Computed example of a mutant assay.
Amino acid sequence: MTVPASALDGEAYAASPSGVAAVRRPGARTSSRRSRIGVAFTLPALVVVGAILAYPLLYLLYLSFSTYRPLSSSAVTWAGLDNYVRLFTDSTVANSLAVTLQFTVASVLLEIVIGTTCAVLLANVMLGARGRGSRLAARVLGSAYIIPFAVPAVAGAYAWRMVLDAQFGAVNALLGTHTTWLVSYPMLSIVVIDSWKMMPFVLFVMLAAVMSIEPSQYEAAELDGAGAVRQLFSITLPSVLPVMVITAAFRAVDAFTKVFDTVFATTGGGPGDATRVFPLLIWRTAFTHLDFGSAAAQAITALAISLVFGGALLFTQRRRAS
């Protein structure tokens, strides 16, 4: 006997040829009602969050087309495209963008290579632990790597300043030298410090990706006579490559637009302008030169670059998903 759809409140049955109800699926009326309820519950939060985000963003956009220098005048005057013309013709801005790009590429590459390598090794240790003591040691080791990520960025940067000190630093003590690392090798220093800080995040993501690989793939590879190196390049790396690409893109956005505290607490952008990254340039334009119009234009440019990186990330993710 076929069950009539009208006998159900918001649900319908798809009848089989024999007249027996086979598939039960939600009706259009129920789906519509659920959608309206969902919108009603989320709309207040969306309005509040949107208002909080919209006001400073719109004011920043307005300020980027204005001249506001409190030392000379308290008035905000319309400047049109002058701030953007000055931005794209200023060699200081071009140099800062180049320095930031160089830092981003080096830092992300180092984090991905070391993070993925450590994730593979840590996964082998955790999966190979058999006894109670071995499992406990594997858990401690699996938790200890997160410590650098938990340390505040400024505290970690000042700790690295002491480690790299020319006279009393641990690095020079181990090498038997008196190298002024932050002066002689400033870019290398901030890349290492930032990678030390953010590499645990990459390791955490890549470890989850490695642990999610089906063990049967490795068992089949062992039956075929594949060694550890062959399994690494034939199974592990191809399996985690999509996660690696997305993680690298996410870290690139973060490194390009948010690298401020590490540089500010270590090299201060020096020597000269060797490590004057773009966020530090924005801060100096606003709070050292008190040119808030130019600083707003630089901030909008940084936001646009971040949106380009984010769009590339979403495009890559959707393309791989399809």
Rank of each mutant, 00 (worst) to 15 (best):
T2H: 05
T2K: 12
A5P: 02
A14E: 11
V20W: 11
A21N: 10
A22V: 12
V23K: 10
A28P: 03
R29L: 04
T30F: 01
S32F: 03
R34C: 00
S35P: 00
R36K: 11
I37Q: 10
G38N: 03
V39D: 00
L46I: 09
V49G: 01
P56H: 07
L57A: 15
L57F: 15
Y59M: 09
L61Q: 05
L61A: 14
S74M: 07
V76A: 04
L81H: 01
D82S: 13
Y84Q: 09
F88Q: 05
F88D: 07
T89H: 14
A98P: 02
F103P: 05
L109G: 04
L110R: 03
L110M: 13
V113T: 13
T117I: 11
V120A: 10
A123S: 14
V125G: 05
A129K: 05
R132P: 03
R132Y: 06
L136K: 05
L136N: 05
A138H: 04
V140M: 15
S143H: 05
S143A: 15
A144W: 06
I147F: 12
Y158M: 12
A159F: 08
W160D: 05
R161G: 12
L164H: 11
L164M: 13
D165Y: 04
N172I: 12
N172P: 07
L174W: 15
V183D: 07
Y185A: 11
L188P: 01
I190T: 07
S195E: 06
M199H: 06
P200C: 07
F201Y: 15
S212H: 07
I213A: 07
S216G: 10
A220C: 04
G225Y: 03
S234H: 13
L237W: 10
L237F: 13
P238D: 01
S239D: 12
L241W: 14
L241V: 10
V243G: 06
V243E: 08
A248P: 03
F250L: 15
V253K: 03
V253D: 02
D254K: 07
D254S: 11
F260R: 08
T262G: 00
T262I: 15
V263E: 04
V263P: 07
A265C: 03
G269F: 06
T275I: 10
R276H: 08
V277M: 12
F278H: 10
F278Y: 15
L281S: 09
R284H: 09
T285V: 02
L290S: 15
L290V: 14
A296M: 02
A297M: 02
A297P: 00
Q298F: 04
L303N: 00
L303Y: 08
A304L: 14
F309Y: 10
G310H: 00
G311P: 03
G311F: 10
Q317T: 11
R320I: 09
A321M: 13
A321P: 05
S322N: 14
